Amino acid sequence: MAKGELRSGYTTGACAAAGVKAAFLYMAGADWHEVGLMALDGTPLTIPVKNVVETAEGIRAEVVKFSGDDPDITNGVSVFTTLALVDETDDIEFRAGEGVGTVTKRGMSLPVGEPSINMGPRTLIRNVVEEMTGSADVGARVTISIPAGVELAKKTLNPVLGIEGGISVIGTTGVLRPMSEEAFKDSLVPQIDVALSAGEPVLVFVPGKIGERIALSLGVSQSALIETSNFIGFMLDRAAERGAEKILILGHTGKLVKMAAGVFHTHNRVADARLETLAAYAAAEGLAQEAVRAVLASNTTEDAMEVIAAAGLAERVCAVIAERVHVRAERYLFGKVQVGALMVNFAGDILGADARALSFARDYGWRLNREP
């Protein structure tokens, strides 16, 4: 491996497929300790198998997930796959064992009630069954268990997406390459599909858990919440493509100030003109020159807001910034979607709201405690 080259690994779906192949090898009396798979993109994979045992439910194989250099939360966990051949069908039935979730909300790629075993892993497993039996019409029951998934699911978006009981068995091809920014962004999009399928009239964009907590305290429905991380513009685009009509952006001062300046990727390494933007808007509302300098010299937006508040201008400045976010966001989407903005502090107080956000609140019964 060349210096600096990141190692690839294999997905939970590939682990499950390797377990199925190991189970077939075990039944044939062949060596099962290491199996070869062809990923769906044509990449050959060699996957070690930790153990294979016979159980009352079938042949169970254990494969330990290897994520390479991807910061994947399932790295090192055991994926157990139990294979049972059955005569009453000529298809494969997939079941969720311990730690594998079940779909409970519409909008996902699988119907409600199905185990959250995505189509990539299912295809890999079907390919293995056909390879090992010579037929695509084999009756089998495949149960996938990831016991650690019960706890790991709490660190994922699965609870928001309505996947209950554990994590999802995922993987588009079977190869796990170190996650790119694009892959992370794409992982956020299903939240939009679920919210729209639930009939939510307003999608409420929050950057993370703090925004989620504040939104819920205002009376926003859990199913309306969309975590965006730093990718506000990307998520606005995806929501518009899917026919969303109304969006509320709810965020801390630091995020909304960037959007007021037209910055819709809010990571500080992409753009960080928070203090300059605050200084400009505060100066436009009458902040004295010395105080403007103090804003520019502040360490954080919280420090800067204290300067602005001391001058009695906080309410006016925050209202103007929220209005500017509304204008910038609707312009970003070429007027296709109504977008409102709520600026909050970490305590959950509403610091600024535009007219669109206030109308959303009236129409949908949100409780706005505007006490900065």
Results as ranks from 00 to 15, higher is better:
143 T>H: 05
143 T>D: 07
144 I>W: 08
148 A>E: 15
148 A>R: 11
148 A>F: 13
149 G>I: 14
151 E>S: 07
153 A>R: 09
154 K>E: 14
154 K>Y: 07
154 K>P: 03
156 T>C: 03
156 T>D: 05
156 T>N: 10
158 N>T: 06
158 N>P: 08
159 P>C: 08
160 V>I: 15
160 V>T: 15
160 V>E: 11
164 E>S: 09
164 E>V: 15
165 G>T: 09
166 G>M: 07
167 I>N: 04
167 I>K: 05
167 I>R: 03
168 S>M: 13
169 V>K: 06
169 V>F: 09
170 I>T: 04
172 T>N: 04
173 T>N: 03
173 T>Y: 03
175 V>N: 10
175 V>K: 06
177 R>A: 13
179 M>T: 13
180 S>Q: 06
182 E>K: 15
183 A>G: 09
185 K>L: 00
186 D>F: 11
187 S>A: 12
188 L>P: 05
188 L>Y: 09
189 V>N: 08
189 V>E: 06
190 P>W: 12
190 P>H: 03
192 I>Q: 08
194 V>H: 03
199 G>S: 03
199 G>Q: 10
200 E>P: 02
201 P>E: 07
201 P>I: 08
202 V>G: 00
204 V>L: 01
205 F>W: 10
209 K>V: 14
210 I>Q: 06
210 I>Y: 04
211 G>F: 00
213 R>S: 10
213 R>M: 08
217 S>A: 14
218 L>R: 02
220 V>F: 08
221 S>E: 12
223 S>D: 13
224 A>E: 00
228 T>G: 08
229 S>L: 04
229 S>W: 05
230 N>W: 08
232 I>Y: 11
233 G>F: 07
234 F>R: 12
235 M>S: 12
236 L>V: 10
241 E>W: 01
241 E>K: 15
241 E>Y: 00
242 R>L: 01
242 R>F: 01
242 R>T: 11
243 G>K: 04
246 K>Q: 15
246 K>V: 10
246 K>W: 10
250 L>C: 01
251 G>F: 09
251 G>R: 01
254 G>M: 05
255 K>Y: 01
256 L>Q: 15
257 V>H: 07
258 K>H: 00
258 K>R: 14
261 A>I: 06
262 G>L: 10
262 G>P: 09
263 V>H: 07
266 T>I: 05
